[in-house]
Design a binder for these strands. Structure first.
Length: 583
DNA sequence: GCCGTTTTCGGCCCGACTGTTTTCAGTCG
């Protein structure tokens, strides 16, 4: 059991206590346990049980509950709470916008015991009549239910990749072949996956069927399957799984056909093709058998198209002209600039965050803890900013040539102002500006808010532009063009937040940003040393949008980044000159 | 439930925002 499972269990217990109207301080205690676990930087499961209180800082009773979880998968209080709560009501806790207290009302007053019953009650206009509810709340509930419906049967990229890779290994073992590959959305690195598609070369497809039918996590769908295609779903997520069983000589053709989006395969790239001559890649594949994907594009007279780009969004036109860019790679990144330490809500100290990154071979770290408005995340008061910067100076002396840049993730307040006065903002090497509150603005207001932040001379970089959490919450709507244009005008870098829940800026806007000359930064937003690894997802998104090393902010060297920050700060006029207009 | 003692129980306690209210409760990050 990993720490996250523990944290989830304690959060659930806290919600259930609240649902059952128990002592608020008891609730806070459970939340406190979850928060304490979140800050830990080691797997609790590996700690000697008797050492738990000392190692975790938890109270004896909380530590005992953690131990119980580790040994039995649950703890007594949680079991009790679950036993007095209908499963459908527990599930309702996941609905955005309503919390335990509103759910209690719905349950007690309307007898609603499931999401479906809730939807029915809302559609009958019964919810809006409850005390404390209203028309808007009812509509918000229906909208949230709609969103969670849409999220069903989908996985974030990392989970989809893990599932796909696991199946590849099992099929390779069962079929005694290396020729099993991931295709489809996972190979194209889509941020959300609905279909996990694999291709396996085998002369014994029945062996593959037998294996796939026997796997615990999969549910077969015989109606959609056939002798050469196993289809079903991953049981818990409901995501579709498809395994095509093909002859060895057909492997490359099938892999290719199952990788590209339909628009890529069926786009006419030879407008004047003679009769019978292939005009699309699909037609070419029908005529000829290939053994390497590079040979397919070569035969078509096209530049090789990386799987990430095979979306049918204009890449073939570029490939025809041999103008596809050389895409960014993991190894091009030389530092990481939006990360948290335990000064705010991160798990690790400045030193730990820096040494880990240095030992991974990177040249610099940008620390951007939360600003003072982010109370929930232990945002830094000006005094603590000062203290942190002093500590960074000391560490920089010791760790040189590795360098920590002094940043901040400054909240963009409701009116678009940055958190902190100019004198404080001026003390940072750079400022990442992000929205964390009041996420329900309409497009006009949300855009104006961002534009105002971008115009602020202290804004170096725009953080997660829409605030979206994939499969969990829609971002606030923004006018992408206006935001990107403003970033171009004010030389503000846009981050591709590499956290797999965010992947924001959306890759579909990367090309537009690049065309406007906006540099992008692959930012893991790490709250833990393990979080740096998320940068690879950000690289995938950049690649999908055609991002190159040259246009990637954190592909710059330490010296280049230092020079960039210094030059940008030098351009800021003295605070008094814009004070009246901006603050 | 946890802390910290006035050592046996009282105090603990985010702020902004929204939507519901007519003075506030619930939710969120």
């Amino acid at each position: 059991m990993d720490n996250r499972a523990l944290i989830r269990a304690f959060r659930l217990a806290a919600s259930l206590l609240e649902l059952h109207d128990e002592n608020p301080f008891k609730i806070r205690a459970y939340e406190g346990t979850a928060a304490a676990l979140e800050r830990l930087e080691f797997p609790v499961a590996e700690v000697e049980r008797t050492g738990l209180p000392d190692r975790t800082g938890l109270s004896k009773t909380a530590a005992a509950r953690v131990a119980e979880m580790l040994d039995t998968g649950t703890f007594e209080e949680l079991t009790r709470l679950l036993s007095i709560t209908p499963p459908g009501v527990v599930e309702m806790l996941n609905i955005k916008g309503i919390g335990p207290k509103k759910i209690r009302m719905l349950w007690r007053e309307l007898g609603v015991e499931s999401s479906d019953a809730l939807r029915a009650a809302a559609e009958r206009d019964e919810v809006s009549k409850l005390k404390g509810f209203g028309k808007k709340t009812q509509d918000a509930i229906l909208q949230a239910l709609e969103f969670s419906d849409q999220s069903r049967g989908k996985l974030l990229y990392p989970q989809a990749e893990e599932l796909a890779k696991d199946l590849v290994v099992r099929l390779q073992e069962a079929l005694f072949t290396e020729s099993v590959a991931v295709a489809g959305e996972v190979r194209r690195r889509l941020e959300v996956v609905e279909n996990v598609v694999l291709v396996a070369a085998t002369a014994q497809p029945e062996k593959a069927h037998k294996l796939l039918n026997s796997l615990d996590g999969l549910t077969a769908d015989p109606l959609r399957s056939g002798p050469f295609a196993w289809r079903g779903t991953a049981t818990t997520s409901g995501v579709k799984v498809e395994v095509l069983l093909v002859a060895k000589d057909d492997f490359t053709n099938q892999l290719f056909l199952l990788t590209g989006a339909e628009a890529h395969l069926s786009e006419i790239f030879v407008p004047q093709a003679a009769h019978g001559q292939p005009a699309t890649l699909r037609q070419l594949l029908k005529k000829e058998r290939f053994y390497q994907e590079t040979a397919i594009y070569e035969k078509a007279g096209l530049q090789y198209v990386e799987p990430e780009l095979r979306e049918g969004l204009g890449e073939l036109a570029l490939a025809k002209e041999h103008k596809l860019p050389k895409l960014l790679e993991d190894a091009d990144l030389r530092g990481s600039v939006h990360n948290h330490s335990n000064y705010s809500d991160g798990a690790h100290t400045l030193r730990q965050m820096a040494e880990f990154l240095r030992d991974e071979g990177y040249e610099y770290l940008g620390i951007c803890d939360h600003s003072q408005a982010a109370h929930y995340a232990n945002g830094l008061s000006p005094e603590r900013v000062h203290q942190q910067q002093h500590e960074i100076d000391e560490l920089n002396k010791e760790l040189a040539p590795f360098r920590i840049f002094k940043g901040i993730e400054s909240d963009i307040l409701g009116d678009g102002a940055l958190d902190y006065q100019p004198t404080v903002l001026a003390s940072f090497d750079f400022v990442v500006a992000s929205v964390h509150s009041n996420l329900k603005m309409d497009e006009a207001r949300a855009t104006t808010r961002l534009l105002r932040a971008i115009e602020n001379p202290y804004c170096t970089m725009l953080g997660h532009p829409t605030g979206r959490l994939l499969l969990r919450r829609e971002g606030y709507p923004i006018d992408y063009k206006a935001v990107i244009d403003a970033c171009a005008q004010h030389e503000v870098v846009i981050e591709i937040n590499a956290n797999p829940w965010r992947l924001d800026l959306d890759w579909r806007w990367v090309r537009y940003a690049l065309d406007q000359g906006v540099k992008l930064s692959i930012n893991p937003d790490a709250h833990h040393t393990t979080g740096y690894a998320d940068m690879r997802y950000g690289v995938f998104m950049g690649r999908k949008g055609g991002l190159t090393k040259e246009m990637t902010f954190n592909a710059m060297s330490r010296e280049e980044v230092a020079a960039y920050f210094a030059q940008r700060k030098a351009k800021i006029k003295p605070a008094e000159e814009f004070k009246t207009t901006l603050f």
